[in-house]
Design a protein around this nucleic acid. Structure first.
Lengths: 252, 252
DNA sequence: AAGTGGTCTAGACCACTGC
DNA sequence: CAGTGGTCTAGACCACTTA
């Protein structure tokens, strides 16, 4: 073969990884304990612990003190289709998130955590094209599937648009906020999303309930109206491994 | 204060993290060596090593054996615009990746690692709509900015399309593979991308040179021709924290 | 009480870098 | 050559879970 230069801990981790990927150790099953690895491979406790640490850092495995190390269950992917903001969904009155989660036999829930008037962070102000000192309405939402937190969303709307409208209410009306925008004379003409992956901050990890070492998708969504004025910036934090975003790309 | 329950290694790591974030240890500077941490904090070598491991896992710091541990320079974000596959770029003969990286004053490079005829993985065959046993040409590419690996790409093309054409050559012609498809009578009409975040596998982490604990973006790109036949599936692995993908969404 | 992961110690050796 | 990160050992203690 190729590499015999690998450290002992790495080779043992690779062996366990193969067992997991081959199905020999199915999702939810218990890995050999550190003591057992220690005896079986004749290594020290520190090395056995490092083997587990390597597997955890790849997200394959999850540990619970006092219980053991378990193969992580691959939760079903929630798929966010590229037409998720299409008008036909607003008219049907059923949000794509609900449809998708229900199709998996899970129960969707969306919670409005807070609605406040705030001074926006600079990167939000920039994307909204706000002058210095311009304020916004911030709507904080949390998305659940079967009571598991799946998405955190902060939506920022210029106060000049949202002030004293239904956009400051928990339920802005049927069809969600984009229908409300339309009522206010702001027609959705263009949407942009910026996607990247990163590790969650402590607070996000807690709120999402992600295991240590699991990444998040960080998505910034910007909507423009008929005058090319940004109507809202929404900041999504998604559990990375359990959400799939699809997009269509222009060809010319 | 709050947490005195933190492990010793974690507290020392936090202290160094503060020094880095406050600018006391600027990017590029050398951290205390493991031996020095050992003496200064009166801990064992193993603990000093773990301190460094913790900092590495957050991506703040980078180690080089024989040299030392250095504060990582914050690399600039590479932005992949939503029109990155537009025809005008193919005609201009300058790929958006090159443009973007050069605009940052860095040197772009693309390497064709291999070109082979292979049996595709099942998920590729599905997306290509291949019958069982259908073979493909796999083109492996690596993208660099300043000799730092930034993207790994595997492109799969049905053998029925690519067999004995320029698509099996290292340089398929000016304008890249999509121009070559067009010469062969396959006009690009639609592209779909599926995006998610995950932790890299060992091999990917090594090839990308990402620090332990840094996530990747996993992007599957599918192109369709004028007959809605899939022309290629390209599988991108990007350094998550250093790449930003932008997309435009349809509004109806 | 027995078993688990997590942390730590004091020492050791290795391959590598830079002088 | 001395110094570096990386790995490992043999043992220890802790907080936690399960029976």
């Amino acid at each position: 073969m190729s590499e015999q230069r690998l450290p002992r801990s790495r080779k043992i981790a690779d062996e366990l990884r193969r067992a997991i990927e081959s199905g020999e150790l199915p999702p939810g099953s218990l890995l050999p304990s550190e003591r057992e690895l220690k005896d079986r491979y004749d290594v020290s406790g520190g090395t056995a612990n490092k083997v587990i640490a390597l597997l955890k850092s790849t997200g394959l495995v999850e540990s619970q003190v006092g219980r053991g190390v378990f193969v992580r269950r691959r939760t079903q992917l929630i798929r966010h289709a590229h037409d998720r903001y299409a008008r036909r969904w607003r008219q049907a009155g059923k949000a794509p998130f609900r449809t998708e989660v229900e199709a998996q036999g899970r129960t969707p829930r969306v919670e409005v955590t807070s609605i406040d008037r705030v001074d926006p962070p600079q990167w939000i102000a920039e994307r909204l094209g706000l002058a210095a000192g311009g304020r916004v309405v911030r709507r904080e939402n949390t998305y659940y599937a079967d009571d598991q937190t799946v998405q955190l969303v902060n939506t920022y709307i210029p106060l000049s648009i949202a002030e004293d409208t239904s956009l400051e209410e928990a339920v802005p009306g049927p069809g969600g906020i984009y229908a409300a925008f339309e009522v206010l004379g702001h027609k959705l003409t263009r949407m942009l999303e910026e996607v990247h992956a990163r590790m969650p901050r402590h607070e996000e990890a807690e709120r999402l309930g992600v295991p240590a070492g699991a990444p998040v998708l960080d998505v910034v969504h910007i909507s423009y109206d008929q005058d090319e004025t940004p109507m809202d910036v929404s900041h999504f934090i998604l559990r990375g491994e359990e959400n799939l975003l699809t997009y269509e790309l222009p060809t010319d």
